[in-house]
Design a protein around this nucleic acid. Structure first.
Lengths: 240, 240
DNA sequence: CGATACCTTGACCACTTTCAACGTCCGTGG
DNA sequence: CCACGGACGTTGAAAGTGGTCAAGGTATCG
């Protein structure tokens, strides 16, 4: 199922060195973490954890995208978090997974056994301080998302989602249009993230294209033709 | 506007002593916090912070209920968090309020100046460890709420809300029915919490009463006549 | 006793979902 | 190399849920 990855990155050369839970660790602390960590990789689509599973590890996402999701018994599901590189999965003080976690793209995790990590945290304020910030950032993001889920229309949700992709890639050009962007998820996954159906996602994307706001080059790639119109369509107002 | 409260509680006698951010502090640490804290009270309905305000303080809720909320420019509003006693407001590392905070009932906060608190945290793992737990609990709660906002029907939302009130008060009786419970919020506030309109809140409560699940004694008080039916109406399945 | 805020109910409407059919892309194996 | 199959995506028509607008009812506090 899950294949143990064979590469080991040195912490000092790790792509998330400056943002992850270890970002404030000094050389001595880093050496300790270096000795505790292990890597694990998951293929796109693979489950990483199911709600209720025992968690022996906590982990940082090194690369790839994982989703946290939750379901009702009849199958309705809601994505409740996107885990991007440097995000942190699990809690030192709890052994049970609260959500389903799945690899959305190929994912590499940097894992630490839970109990040794808890001990390390107790001795290393640099780590717990950074973990507080990471967790509070996720909490703020979750609360922003609640406004979208509760109060935005389908068109606003789609525009917000596309706008996020633009911002995330930092690709706004002076002259207006943006370079071609990739949609990293299927229509169904976008629907589960935005609390829509896949049909509505499809229709609203088509509508934004008809209105000249965006343009699809193929199913997975689009250009923003009118960034200002896209921003207005998010419902957030002129600036954000 | 905000009146400085005149009472001072000793930390050792504080009602949230065992759950708040200070819960793991030892006597020496508590003595330091005792010297840093101040109390502030707010009347029901009063604003505590507006999004974008400068925050000089972080604070624990001592008693009362505060709401975090967020709005779109056209006035649509979503409550994104209920702050109950022992919950923590603000971040040591950020000066700007991310959300509107308002007192829902009369509220007392135990406040600490931000910068001294940040320094204290750096020196006191007991505090930062507990803050991580509090923050992660809120994150889990926010994610649970996302499932409700995104995927539950109006009836399920109302049933979930009423069910929460039952659980929170720990009042389930063996024989089925429960003692009279108070609705702590107006229909409008409930609507902003559940992402509905106040009319829909009213209609769904009436519907649950017609179906014999609950019974209103007056506008602010109800009995649960059929706890099992209420549980089923939440959409969470038989057990939860 | 009147003013005001809160709540209920009805009629109508809009938006999103549901259900269904069809289209497109892509990898696998004949 | 092409054909097939399966996953993914689009579009249409109909239905249903919740929202909007409007009117009237009820509680509470001067």
């Amino acid at each position: 199922m899950n294949e143990q990855s064979h590469f080991r990155i040195k912490c000092s050369e790790c792509p998330i060195r400056h943002r992850a839970v270890c970002s404030r660790a000094d050389d001595a602390e880093l050496a300790v973490m270096e000795g505790m960590k292990s890597y694990q990789t998951y293929k796109a689509g693979e489950p990483i954890l199911r709600q209720g599973d025992e968690m022996k590890f906590v982990a940082s996402v090194v690369h790839g995208v994982a989703t946290l999701s939750q379901s009702l018994e009849d199958g309705r599901t809601q994505v409740v978090g996107l885990m991007l590189p440097s995000d942190f999965i699990g809690r030192a003080s709890r052994a049970e997974a609260q959500f389903d976690v799945a690899a959305s793209t190929d994912v590499t995790l940097c894992q630490f056994e839970r109990k040794p990590f808890a001990q390390l945290m107790a001795k290393t304020p640099h780590i717990s301080e950074r973990l507080i910030e990471i967790t509070m950032d996720e909490l703020d993001a979750a609360r922003d998302w609640m406004l979208l889920l509760g109060r935005k229309t389908a068109r606003e949700k789609i525009a917000t989602f596309l706008s996020m992709l633009v911002v995330r890639h930092g690709l706004e050009l002076e002259d207006g249009t943006t370079p071609r962007l990739a949609l990293p998820l299927t229509r169904e996954k976008i629907a589960n993230y935005l609390a829509l159906t896949l049909e509505t996602v499809s229709r609203q994307m088509t509508a934004l294209q008809k209105d000249g706001v965006i343009e699809f080059t193929d199913r997975k790639h689009f250009n923003v033709l009118d960034p200002r119109a896209l921003q207005l369509a998010t419902g957030n107002g002129e600036e954000d």
